[in-house]
């Protein structure tokens, strides 16, 4: 297998992968709850609430990329929006947040919706 051979030649540091994905995961679950609070206060219902969540979590990843990944990744010759310096899977980096925080989002969304409109 050529990819296995490539891994032998230029290995991946497992601890760094774990450190990075944990950082991103923590941020995503924390912000997802925050978006739930926002959606609850705004009184969003059904599809508009989920749309709010999708937009916000993409925004989070974008902000994370701009503030944390881009400053070191661009000078090292990576293309824009390429997070491969810190994350193995691009798809996971950009969309992983949607799944990670959904439960937390719905929890705080319903909670604050109920609190505000009691």
């Amino acid at each position: 297998m050529s990819s296995e051979r490539e891994l032998q030649i230029s290995p991946i540091v497992q601890e760094a992968v774990m450190n990075n994905s944990k950082t991103l995961y923590n941020l995503q679950s924390l912000t997802a709850s925050l978006f739930g609070v926002g959606a609850g206060i705004l009184g969003l219902e059904s599809y508009s609430g989920f749309l709010f969540y999708v937009v916000c979590s993409l925004l989070t990843t974008m902000l994370f990329y701009v503030l944390r990944v881009a400053p070191t990744s661009l000078p090292s010759g990576k293309a824009a929006f390429d997070a491969s310096r810190y994350f193995r899977s691009q798809f996971e980096f950009w969309t992983g947040g949607l799944m990670n925080g959904l439960a937390g989002f719905i929890l705080t969304w319903t909670l604050f919706y109920g609190l505000v409109r009691a």
């Binding site: 230029s10 991946i12 540091v13 601890e15 760094a16 992968v17 450190n19 990075n20 950082t23 991103l24 923590n26 941020l27 994370f64 944390r68 990944v69 070191t72 310096r85 810190y86 994350f87 193995r88």
Partner: peptide, 8 residues
Amino acid sequence: TRPLRPIQ
């Protein structure tokens, strides 16, 4: 957030 570490 914590600083990231290069994975290569």
